[in-house]
Amino acid sequence: MARWLWLSLAVLVLDQITKVLALGWLTPYLPYPVIPNFNLTLMFNEGAAFSVLADAGGWQRWGLSAFAAGMSLVLAVWLTRLGSGERLLAVSLALIIGGAVGNLIDRVLYGHVIDFVQVYLPVIPLALFNPWPAFNIADSAISVGVMLLLFASFRADGTARTSSARD
């Protein structure tokens, strides 16, 4: 299943290209409205998701980098050991790996992750993430990958329960 690493590479390339474009075209922290409830806003995240640990004093750059590198390696090994019928799991792992490596590159090169997609969710009360924290292609790939991983896990769990109930 290592053949799915092409998807990781595609996510990584798309992520890095869009970040270079955002750096070249956008002014930091100045929203550029695209459509209602959707802006392009260049921001820099020194922390983890939702800027958690952003004010941690600097150690988070290398700590989060080491974590991302280690997890990417673990997920890549897992991916290479999957059976041919585990496509959904392979896709989910490949998306997570591509996103993690994309953000890892930012942390190592710049000391922060480059975010530029900003969404307003009108159904969420103003006090709760409105606008939604800025994110990027890598973050999106990780989020979709985790959702697919959970779905694959629940599906596999249900299949295991069903087959054991028949025995």
Rank of each mutant, 00 (worst) to 15 (best):
R87H: 11
L121F: 15
V77T: 10
L75F: 12
V108Q: 08
D15G: 05
A54H: 07
N39Q: 02
Q118F: 03
T41Y: 00
D115I: 08
D115N: 08
I35H: 00
G70T: 13
G47C: 06
Q16R: 14
I97Q: 05
L21A: 10
T80P: 03
S65A: 15
D106E: 11
L75W: 09
F50P: 14
Y29R: 05
L93W: 01
Y110H: 15
G111W: 02
V113C: 02
G24R: 14
G98W: 00
L73M: 08
L23S: 10
I35Q: 00
D106K: 00
Y110V: 11
L75E: 08
P36N: 12
F67Q: 09
F116G: 15
I114F: 11
L82E: 09
P31E: 14
L23A: 10
E46K: 07
F50H: 05
Y29F: 15
V52G: 11
V77H: 03
G63P: 04
A56Y: 02
L23K: 15
G63M: 08
V20M: 10
W78T: 10
R81G: 14
V20F: 08
D15F: 06
A22F: 01
G85M: 07
P33W: 00
P31C: 15
A100E: 14
A68K: 01
V34S: 00
V91A: 12
P31R: 13
N37K: 04
S84L: 10
I96Y: 11
G57M: 04
L88H: 07
L21P: 03
A54W: 04
Q60I: 14
V11Q: 14
E86I: 09
F44A: 09
V101F: 05
P33M: 01
T18K: 02
I17P: 01
G102P: 12
Q118H: 05
L73T: 11
A100H: 14
S51C: 06
D15W: 06
N37T: 06
G85T: 08
G83D: 14
T80N: 13
I96H: 12
A22H: 02
L73E: 06
N37L: 03
F44T: 13
E46F: 01
L14C: 14
W62K: 00
A69P: 00
G70P: 00
L21H: 00
F116T: 14
L95F: 07
R107D: 11
L104E: 04
S51W: 01
